[in-house]
Amino acid sequence: MATLAQWAEGARPRTLPAAAAPVIVGSAAAYHAGEFSGWLALAALAVALSLQIGVNLANDYSDGIRGTDLERVGPMRLVASGAASPSAVKYAAFGWFGAGALFGLVLVIASAQWWLLAIGVAAIAAAWFYTGGKNPYGYRGLGEVGVFVFFGLVAVLGTQLTQAGRITLVGVLGAISIGLLACALLMVNNIRDIAGDRMAGKMTLAVRMGERNARLSYVAMIAVPILLGSLAAPATGGWSLLVCLLLAPAVLLSIPVLAGAWGRALIMVLSGTGLYELGFALLFAIALVLGAR
């Protein structure tokens, strides 16, 4: 029987700031569009956090029963370590998915954006089949596609849409940026696990691209959002140039990745990337609020 502390670690709380980032940007984009609802923003945040914990536990379960986690470096895995039974972890994942669905239903009813129900179902399916099912798409190098779509485009634009009733250019720029940063998180995680994933037959995008190209793509994923944020300057009275403050952190994160950091040395980069995404979200959100007309 896993302890409460082990369950908390297995839920990977360090990923939660990254789950909050798209809600922050989407809510700020709604404010910039002339509409903002605090309680709808909190409902969107509850959806994002629930689904993030759910997907973390689902990945723990699916990778654990396949043996993918046996040679992996990083946070404790509940199934692979034997701390919790596979069924317990699976049902915990379903429980968090259910919580996300309930919060999402509240959001849909309040905003009357009924078509988002289908998007919510797709998001939960994508979370499960990333590593679950007979042919998980995360094992075929498509994980970044799912992350970009659901933790970037859908999360940011869905948040804006439920509050403002429309999508704007600054919202799209923010959504693409957050999607790329979410992909960067996944990429550096998979760079760390290339050797183990290759042995286990998990053909992530990092495995398919090769180590050198994967490392270069990570740098591009954290650099391009600074450019995209800067492009919003005309719509924010120049305030979005605040994202240029991230140039120094981007360099600091890129150096160990390009220098060939491996294994545990990449854990700090992974944690830093999550904070970098949150930092981008806060700076871009501040720019949207200050630049609102």
Rank of each mutant, 00 (worst) to 15 (best):
N190K: 10
G263C: 01
L142Y: 14
A175H: 03
E9M: 07
A155D: 11
I109D: 08
V149R: 00
W7E: 01
L185A: 04
V79N: 02
V145S: 00
G238M: 12
G291M: 04
A281D: 06
S50C: 14
A5R: 13
G104D: 10
A206R: 03
N190R: 06
A41L: 09
G279K: 04
L290N: 00
A44N: 11
W96I: 00
W262R: 12
V269P: 13
G279C: 09
R77Y: 13
G143M: 07
V289K: 06
G34K: 01
V170C: 01
A126I: 09
V47I: 13
V207D: 12
A195E: 13
L102M: 14
G274K: 05
L157V: 04
R72A: 15
E35P: 00
V147S: 03
P256T: 04
L173Q: 03
G272A: 09
M1Q: 10
R293V: 05
A250D: 05
G263D: 15
L161S: 06
G237A: 03
A164G: 01
A43V: 15
L228V: 01
A250T: 04
A112Y: 12
S271P: 02
S50I: 08
G38L: 14
S85W: 00
A220P: 12
G229F: 14
W115A: 15
A164I: 00
P234H: 14
Q163R: 10
A285N: 01
A93N: 14
A84T: 12
S62D: 11
S271T: 11
A292C: 10
R66H: 08
I119T: 14
I176T: 02
L247E: 07
V188H: 07
A200C: 10
L266E: 04
P256Q: 07
I267L: 11
L216S: 08
G201L: 04
S37Y: 10
A5G: 09
D193T: 11
L4A: 15
G279F: 12
K202Y: 09
Y61A: 03
W128V: 06
A48V: 00
A8K: 11
A281Y: 00
